[in-house]
Design a binder for these strands. Structure first.
Lengths: 171, 171
DNA sequence: CTATTATCGTTTGAATTCAAACGTTCGATC
DNA sequence: GATCGAACGTTTGAATTCAAACGATAATAG
């Protein structure tokens, strides 16, 4: 069935109903498939990998960022995840409750909070990340390798375009 | 600066820190840029278009689906949005509170609930959708038209791959 | 026809999310 | 140094999200 390579059934129906309106149908296609792919990806990872470790997608992403960037400030977690500072505070409270991260005040600037993994947190990331990456590979594996490279390039260009347009909107 | 076309600075740092581990770095690139692009897209639309109408991204998406598919069952909204039925119930409660949708029992099957727009809901969608689509066009416009076509095709293939793999996981 | 099973939408409780408001701390200017 | 504005993380309140449990209805089996 060549429908997946061309247009999905749902997409065709949407197009039919908006035809006549001055709508950018290509942009609509890009946006709706971008959103849908990201949601399916998130759900797959939460159900198949993170659930058994009582981690949400956001919790794991935060844990991963802290693992990569060592002691890191709350505001930088927020920027790197494209979420608000309030969200990060909530996530850190949950993660701290589970003993995976610890917060400490910065010496130089008393407003700052430095976050780092506990040893339990480090163990968790190092245990879960390979399985998480396998899930990513399952999804990416739907495409050929040249297609994966091209998809990564195009998405990177979109992300870069955002950063140029707004440059620090996250309050 | 060719960094956006190649690898972002953050991506390079992540790669550096996971080098040595048996990680599929291409899949990691695809997944992280997919997630980031989708989140930035959602935030842009919520802030620049939906916020002034007191609509969340999910609320508008739901409204749009109901606009397209006329009277529709709760379970079909859930499937089309890739969210749980419980989420749809919550969204419908909010939308009903704002007078944008109405629910009625189906005659044939008393378990079903049919959802449709009120006239206020229809007015809202028809007013907001063009502006929403303009936001989509802004984002897609970061890419050339051939790139947009290719991105849509690749994402569609990924989405189709999901549907083949799981086929109705949404409980 | 009755009993079992499956499906529907909802409720419950907990986590995630954000704008707005807040107190605290830093920096800049006078 | 004192004052004003900016930036930090947190709190608050409301909406979104989901798994699990639930009652009601339908479909299937016996």
């Amino acid at each position: 069935m060549p429908i997946q390579e061309d247009f999905s059934r749902a997409e065709l129906e949407v197009m039919r109903r908006v035809s006549g309106l001055p709508i950018d149908e290509l942009a609509l296609s890009v946006a709706s498939n971008l959103w849908r792919a990201s949601q399916l990806f998130k759900q797959k990872l939460e159900r198949e990998v993170l659930r058994e470790h009582s981690l949400s997608f956001s919790s794991f992403s935060t844990l991963f960022i802290i693992w990569i960037w060592g002691p890191i400030e709350t505001r930088d977690i927020a920027k790197s995840q494209a979420v608000s500072k309030a969200t990060v505070t909530s996530l850190l409270i949950t993660l701290e409750k589970h003993g995976l991260v610890k917060r400490k005040a910065a010496k130089s600037d008393k407003r700052l909070v430095l976050v780092e993994l506990t040893s339990a947190g480090r163990t968790m990331v190092e245990w879960v990340f390979p399985k998480f990456n396998q899930g990513e590979a399952d999804v990416a594996g739907i495409l050929t390798e040249p297609e994966q490279l091209e998809l990564a390039r195009l998405l990177r260009k979109v992300v870069a375009g955002f950063q140029i347009s707004f440059e620090e909107v996250t309050a």
